[in-house]
């Protein structure tokens, strides 16, 4: 198994947005399943960057939802993990992170997610979990080869 050891899991924004909607709608979707799976893996930590959190809430603002409800929902969702110190932020500034391969234009809008994962790499096992195979599959192999980072769909993360 890839993640028998401790790992840092970086959720793509689509997982965060899906997570909040599924929590509010009380639907058990893929995002919530991925989150519950992470919670059960005691040695997995959730890695977040300011950019990912802002984009998550920004997407909700963008579709006209009020911010605070979702910020509070996000914090409530993460609270249990936070209490166990399992929500972490990178020490490095994403502006100083370099990606060792050219980013395809289809994935440019997810550069901050990729940079967040790289920022955590150091000595950690890191994976990106996403719901967007069409774009992320374009960088999957390169991320593994150049940065040693796994790129997984939520299904692959839950059941590798």
């Amino acid at each position: 198994m890839i993640f028998d050891r401790s790992a840092i899991v970086v959720f793509d924004t689509s997982i965060f947005v899906g997570l909040i909607f599924e929590k509010i709608e009380e639907e058990q979707g893929r995002a919530l399943e991925a989150f519950e799976h992470l919670k059960r893996q005691g040695n997995h930590k959730l890695g977040v960057s300011e950019e990912i959190v802002e984009e998550t809430v920004g997407r909700l603002w963008g579709i006209g939802q009020r911010g605070y409800d979702y910020i509070l929902e996000l914090m409530e969702t993460l609270r249990e993990l936070e209490e166990e110190s399992r929500v972490v932020r990178p020490t490095k500034d994403l502006n100083n992170i370099s990606i060792r391969f050219p980013i395809p234009s289809e994935v440019e809008h997810d550069t901050h997610v990729i940079k967040t994962a790289i920022a955590f790499k150091n000595r950690n096992i890191v994976c990106i979990v996403h719901k967007n195979p069409r774009d992320f599959n374009l960088v999957k192999d390169k991320m593994r080869r150049h940065h040693g980072i796994y790129v997984l769909t939520s299904e692959e993360y839950i059941d590798p």
């Binding site: 977040v48 300011e50 959190v53 802002e54 809430v57 603002w61 963008g62 006209g64 939802q65 009020r66 911010g67 605070y68 910020i71 914090m75 936070e82 110190s85 929500v87 972490v88 932020r89 990178p90 020490t91």
Partner: peptide, 22 residues
């Protein structure tokens, strides 16, 4: 959404983010 609300909410998020361990 509402520009001044977003500004405050972003600030609120930043403050929360700073409390997370690295």
């Amino acid at each position: 959404w509402i520009p001044s609300y977003i500004k405050v909410e972003k600030e609120f998020l930043r403050e929360w983010f700073k409390t997370l361990p690295t």
